[in-house]
Simulated assay, not measured.
Amino acid sequence: MKKPLGTALMIGALAGCIGPQDTPPEENACGAAQMQALIGTPVAAQDFSGQAAVRILPPGSMVTMDYRPDRLNVEHDADGVITRIACG
């Protein structure tokens, strides 16, 4: 009896932590929209030092699933060519 009750209490406590977002996250807080012209160019030729947070993601990279609207994600292929730029 204690096991189902403990499990129910844990699920109830976790459900209280999860809720709908009141406002949608800013989709361009990292400036990705202005950088779309870089797609197709070599990632090594770009300077992202002006960004607060940047992740350069080679193919098959393992990444955390946390969403940060201010973080710039730059994905590239095996040849080092940028394939996607997005916030997150």
Rank of each mutant, 00 (worst) to 15 (best):
K2G: 00
K2P: 00
K3M: 03
K3Y: 04
K3N: 03
P4I: 01
P4E: 01
P4C: 00
P4D: 00
L5M: 09
G6N: 06
T7N: 02
T7F: 14
T7I: 15
T7V: 15
A8N: 01
L9Q: 01
M10V: 15
I11N: 00
I11T: 11
I11K: 00
I11E: 00
G12R: 00
G12F: 13
G12V: 11
A13Q: 08
A13H: 08
L14T: 09
A15C: 14
G16K: 07
C17F: 12
C17S: 11
C17A: 14
C17V: 13
I18E: 03
I18K: 04
G19R: 08
G19K: 09
G19T: 09
P20T: 07
Q21M: 12
Q21S: 10
Q21A: 13
D22C: 03
D22Y: 04
D22E: 14
D22T: 09
T23E: 14
P24V: 09
P24R: 11
P24K: 09
P24I: 10
P24Q: 11
P24M: 12
P25N: 04
P25W: 05
E26M: 13
E26P: 05
E27A: 14
N28G: 07
N28S: 08
A29D: 09
A29H: 11
C30I: 06
C30G: 02
G31L: 11
G31E: 10
A32W: 02
A32T: 01
A33P: 01
Q34S: 15
Q34T: 13
Q36N: 06
Q36M: 11
Q36Y: 05
I39A: 08
G40K: 01
G40A: 02
G40C: 01
T41C: 01
T41V: 00
P42I: 11
A44S: 15
A44G: 07
A45P: 05
Q46F: 02
Q46T: 03
D47K: 03
D47V: 05
D47P: 06
S49D: 06
S49C: 07
G50N: 11
Q51H: 12
Q51T: 08
Q51V: 10
Q51C: 08
A52V: 14
A52L: 12
A53I: 07
A53T: 10
V54Q: 05
R55P: 01
R55G: 05
I56Y: 06
I56V: 13
I56W: 04
L57Q: 11
P58V: 07
P59K: 02
G60T: 08
S61P: 10
M62C: 08
V63D: 13
V63Y: 08
M65I: 14
M65L: 15
D66I: 02
Y67M: 13
Y67W: 14
R68C: 02
R68D: 15
P69W: 05
P69D: 13
P69R: 12
D70T: 12
R71T: 09
R71W: 08
N73S: 09
N73K: 07
V74H: 07
E75N: 10
H76T: 07
D77R: 06
D77L: 08
A78G: 12
A78D: 15
A78S: 15
I82G: 10
I82A: 12
I82P: 13
R84G: 06
R84E: 13
R84W: 03
I85Y: 02
I85C: 04
I85P: 03
I85N: 03
I85H: 01
A86G: 05
C87N: 07
C87T: 07
